[in-house]
Structure formats: structure tokens, C-alpha cells
Design a protein around this nucleic acid. Structure first.
Length: 279
DNA sequence: CTACTTGTTGGTAT
DNA sequence: AATACCAACAAGTA
């Protein structure tokens, strides 16, 4: 399940592999994946050069000649693979970009949740999900002032608040649990009850954890791999996610798993006490 | 067969 | 208005 670090890893892999390549033709094997009628999608992409790959949150922007951008969201299990012509088509391959050099860029997605929107470059922020996207989790964009402001004005509990991409871009279920553990904050803590000191700790952990995950090429929880086919390394670093019943790496207490906002939520009941609110 | 998982949107209920 | 909850999407696993 790609979160920001995995998407960034894919961006880097695609940049190395297909930046500068030219699309010859496109096959659409699953039409619901795209925002245009397949014939329009194919026709618009014919002969376009892949100029650059950008990223915003979990969204990839494939910049093409002709002032076009493919906005690609991998959702749960989307992947890009580069294959030579003639290599067998996987049953979960949904879009094939035939390149003029004979290689193929293939979009694979077991659950068909991923989406591609072909839009005019400059209008990509009008794609659903990007209109309201929050700041990137970086030192520069995710300021203390911003965090302080959004935390003060909401009574939502922190875990679903972190998953809401309009607050901060890029956190998914794994890293949300991880940064809360790192910051010793209970997933059910209402955000307006979190002290400024804790907000600063959380901010630093979000920025640092995602940077570390990018450095480790993302995480492998299900079937994630980079565009090179190499597995991510980061799963070795997860402290609470997927570790229900195992000892907390900090205090040894058993990690608990609960359901919060319909999502599996892992935390240490001792390190991450709920502060000053009744349950 | 059921329940559960994931990210995101969109609708309804409180 | 803000929040909470649910369904939908799709397919795999237990």
C-alpha cells in the first residue's frame, strides 16, 4: 500500500527508466481506470514524450509534451513496471504504454483501485483529491504555525485527522501509526488537546520518518516493489504497524490493535496514554 | 459462505 | 458547521 515514501520511490524509479522516452501507442485493458473514453486517451498520448515525473502527496504527475499531464494515483496496490516487448502480460496489467524504443511501461493493479487522469498541464490541481490537498510533510511546507492552527480548530481525534490528506499530504495507515508511536500520542487524542510542545515533536517525527522511509525505498507490507522490481527495505523499521501482541520496542508492553475510523490502528497502551480526556 | 483489509470520495445522520 | 459513520470501489486472504 503505497504511501508518500513509496510513491516518491516510484517517481525516482520512473524518472530513471522512462524520462525522455516517447510513447508510441497505448493499450487500455481496463477502461474504468482512466478519466477519458479509451480512444480519446490513446489518441491524445500517441507520440508524446515523457518529459518529467513530479509528485504531490501520493499523486504522481507524468509530464508529457503537448502540455499534457497524467495524474496517477496508485491507491492500494498500483505499480509501474518496465518490460520488454513480448514479455507475458500479467492478469492485473491494465494500461500498457508502448515506447518507441521497444520497451513497455505497464501499469499493474491487483485491486483496480488506482486511477489515471489525463489533463492539461496546469489544471492538475482540479482533479478530485488535489483541490483540497494539504502541505507536503517537509521542513519547509509543514510549518509549526500551520500545524498549530489546524490542531487548535478541530476536535477530531488525531489518527483519522492524520489520514485526512487535506490536513497533511502523504500519510497513510502505516506511517500514521508509526509517527504517533514515535511521538507518544494516543491515536484517540483529540487534536485540540495536544500541547504545542507535542505538536512540534509530532511535526518533526512526521518529517523525519517519511524522509527515512524514502531513504530506505519505502515499505513492503503487501506486494510493493519499486519500478526496478526491488522490494522496499523499510518494513524492518516499523515499530507498531502489524505488530499486534508483540512487545513495544520502547517499554515491552504488548502492542494493541483497535479499530478507529474503520481502520486498523496499532499502538502501545503504556507509551501512548490518552491525556486529559474521558474515554 | 463471511469478515476484513487498504485510500479516497461522497452521501447521510447526528 | 462540524463530526461520525457507512457504502462504494475490487480483489485477495483467512
Amino acid at each position: 500500500m503505497p504511501e508518500l515514501p513509496e510513491v516518491e520511490t516510484v517517481r525516482r524509479g520512473l524518472t530513471q527508466l522512462v524520462e525522455g522516452s516517447t510513447i508510441k501507442t497505448v493499450d487500455v485493458l481496463y477502461a474504468k481506470m482512466i478519466n477519458l473514453p479509451p480512444d480519446d486517451f490513446k489518441e491524445a498520448l500517441r507520440g508524446k514524450r515523457i518529459e518529467k515525473i513530479d509528485r504531490r502527496g501520493k499523486y504522481l504527475f507524468i509530464r508529457l509534451s503537448g502540455h499534457l499531464t497524467i495524474v496517477s494515483h496508485l491507491r492500494m496496490e498500483g505499480k509501474y513496471d518496465v518490460e520488454p516487448e513480448g514479455s507475458p502480460i500479467d492478469k492485473h496489467t491494465h494500461i500498457i504504454f508502448h515506447l518507441t524504443d521497444g520497451r513497455q511501461l505497464r501499469y499493474n493493479d491487483t485491486r483496480k483501485f488506482g486511477r489515471m487522469n489525463l489533463v492539461d498541464t496546469g489544471t492538475e490541481m482540479q482533479v478530485a483529491g488535489l483541490k483540497t490537498i494539504g502541505p507536503e510533510p517537509t521542513e519547509k511546507d509543514l510549518t509549526v504555525e500551520y500545524m498549530k492552527r489546524i490542531f487548535a480548530k478541530s476536535r477530531k481525534v488525531i489518527k483519522p485527522f492524520l489520514l485526512d490528506q487535506s490536513n497533511i499530504a502523504g500519510l497513510g495507515n502505516i506511517y500514521a501509526d508509526e509517527v504517533l508511536w514515535l511521538s507518544k500520542i494516543n491515536p484517540k487524542q483529540p487534536v485540540n488537546t495536544i500541547s504545542l510542545a507535542k505538536i512540534k515533536v509530532l511535526r518533526k517525527n512526521i518529517i523525519d520518518e517519511l524522509a527515512r522511509a524514502i531513504a530506505g525505498h519505502g515499505t513492503t507490507v503487501h506486494s510493493y516493489s519499486t519500478a526496478y522490481g526491488e522490494a522496499g527495505q523499510f518494513q524492518n523499521h516499523l515499530n507498531v504497524y502489524g505488530r499486534e501482541g508483540e512487545p513495544c520496542p520502547r517499554c515491552g508492553t504488548k502492542i494493541v490493535k483497535i479499530k478507529l475510523a474503520q481502520r486498523g490502528t496499532h499502538f502501545c497502551p503504556k507509551c501512548q496514554r490518552l491525556r486529559g480526556v474521558k474515554k
